[in-house]
């Protein structure tokens, strides 16, 4: 993929500055199965800033990248589900730590293609960090809230225990590319699901960068997979893929919502599609609820004989 950035630091045409070194620019790639591959299709698209300057070329993921991501996520399910809830919480907290360390880089990337102040971009990064901490905390607590001991007429204990659903596809909206992505990804993740996420289409760089957070946070390979690409191309594949067990999405377009909801008819996917414009992503009362986890759980009821 072409390396693009403002070439000023090369000293090419600005006065008589001497070239002392070439800057090493970042190549943004997909995050798949713990690695950073380019898309198998070889396609990319240009990300420009508000001045029309090219800031990066992003991988345009294909249906085959999505297929590979689902395959990796399905393979990672058992290992992620076997980890203790406490350990999953620690790993989400570690993701928050890594995001904190890269806050400056994320703040810059979030300012590329949106007219927003540095303060506003930083606010989004900080809210995303808090969201990871929140769902890291929920990892070993939501079963107490969403599970229960049921009163039954007989000498039995009767428990309802939540378990992870499986592979969840996350579809992030265009606005708040980092915060919305994290808000949609963290709830199913903390419960033991594995995730294949398609990031914001208009501001995808934050999604590609978030792969670096996952890669340095003890998230096992395949548990989180991040794609950048076009919704029109990939949503029908998500809908029809029988290996995807659930969809957690926030979209603006009614047609996209319909496409995703049809996924229920294919293999009884758990589908939660939010109206992206109606969600206040910064409101902890709205977005820190354990009921963001609940759609991606299967409830198992256990009967056990009691002594009386």
């Amino acid at each position: 993929m072409a390396k693009t950035q403002s070439q000023n630091s090369l000293g090419k045409s600005k006065g008589k500055r001497k070239v002392d070194r070439l800057p090493v620019l970042k190549t943004y790639k997909l995050y798949l199965n713990g690695g950073f591959p380019r898309t198998e299709s070889g396609r990319s698209w240009k990300i420009e800033d508000l001045n029309g300057s090219t800031r990066a070329h992003l991988c345009r993921a294909s249906r085959k990248d999505l297929r590979d991501a689902v395959q990796a996520a399905a393979k990672a399910r058992s290992a992620w589900g076997r980890k203790t809830a406490y350990n999953r919480g620690q790993i989400l907290y570690r993701m928050a730590e890594m995001l904190e360390g890269k806050a400056e880089e994320f703040t810059q990337v979030l300012q590329w293609s949106q007219k927003r102040t540095r303060r506003h971009a930083l606010k989004e990064v900080e809210a995303a960090i808090d969201r990871l901490v929140c769902f890291g905390g929920w990892a070993d607590k939501f079963p107490q809230v969403l599970g229960c001991a049921n009163p039954v007429a007989g000498p039995y204990y009767n428990f309802t225990v939540p378990e992870a659903t499986g592979v969840i596809a996350v579809i992030a909206p265009d606005a708040q590319p980092l915060l919305a992505l994290v808000s949609l990804l963290a709830p199913p993740l903390c419960a033991g699901n594995t995730v294949v996420a398609l990031g914001s289409e208009s501001q995808p760089a934050a999604t590609a960068l978030f792969g670096e957070v996952c890669a340095t946070s003890d998230v096992p390979p395949g548990v989180v997979n991040l794609l950048t690409g076009f919704r029109q191309e990939l949503l029908p594949v998500v809908r029809d893929h029988r290996g995807v067990d659930g969809i957690h999405a926030a979209v603006d377009d009614a047609e996209e919502r319909r496409t995703l909801e049809l996924g229920r008819a294919e293999n009884l996917k758990r589908v939660r599609v939010l109206d992206a414009g109606a969600v206040d992503w910064y409101d902890p009362r709205e977005c820190h609820s354990p009921y963001w986890i609940e759609p991606f759980l299967e409830m198992k009821t256990i009967w056990h004989p009691s002594s009386s």
Binding site: R67, V70, A74, V237, D240, H241, R242, G243, E266, N267
Partner: peptide
């Protein structure tokens, strides 16, 4: 034209 799941 659809991807199958392992359990199919």
């Amino acid at each position: 034209g659809k991807y199958m799941a392992g359990y199919d």
